[in-house]
């Protein structure tokens, strides 16, 4: 349990507070959710636009991360795991992107979430960047995999803010499929 974040005068408050998590993965699967949980590290939090930038500007560019690293920008109180109560009935949109596109895509997706551009209320849980080879993955997690109108709206907003060409596929995957 972390202390509440304070916002200085002049800072611009965000609709939600966020936590940035880092995870160094590997080719081998984790034996249990508990092992995975222990491998997640909260590397910073933000409650205002200014706090987000001061955190973001300390990060290396996603394109320079080695394969099998993950960055998760999630709402405070939601752990970026399928098993979290906020995620257990949810799912994610998955976009595969070339390394040359990932830095801008990650930044734009973060901007859209922090600025509430998705217009789906509390449906958004967070955004994940996963470095793979040869392509990286950008995912947007939402709470309810059966909420078709929110899911469609998230997809349409993603296509717009990332300026995705029509030939780039965007796939939805409920977490229950992953948990099986």
């Amino acid at each position: 349990k972390l202390p509440a974040l304070e916002i200085s005068p002049g800072e611009h408050k965000l609709q939600y507070n966020y936590c940035l998590w880092y995870h160094k993965g590997s080719m081998t699967k984790f034996k249990s959710p508990n092992d995975y949980s222990k491998s997640l590290h909260c590397i910073g939090r933000c409650a205002s636009v200014e706090q987000f930038w001061s955190l973001y500007c300390h990060l290396v560019r996603p394109s320079t991360l080695k394969p099998y690293r993950e960055l998760h920008l999630f709402k405070s109180g939601i752990k970026p795991m399928w098993e979290d109560p906020s995620n257990v009935k949810g799912g994610k949109w998955v976009i595969r992107l070339r390394k040359t596109k990932i830095d801008r895509a990650w930044e734009n997706a973060c901007m859209a979430m922090l600025g509430e551009q998705f217009l789906v209320g509390p449906e958004i849980c967070g955004i994940v960047l996963s470095t793979r080879f040869p392509e990286d993955l950008l995912c947007v997690w939402n709470r309810t995999s059966t909420d078709q109108s929110s899911i469609n709206r998230i997809r349409d907003t993603l296509r717009r803010v990332l300026n995705l060409p029509p030939n780039v596929a965007v796939d939805y995957k409920p977490h229950c499929d992953c948990l099986k």
């Binding site: 609709q15 200014e50 922090l114 600025g115 209320g121």
Partner: peptide
Amino acid sequence: GTRIIYERAFLMNLKNSPLSR
């Protein structure tokens, strides 16, 4: 309450504000 909505351009403008350093 009111939802706090920020456009991308507005957020980008705050990237270099003294409070963001």
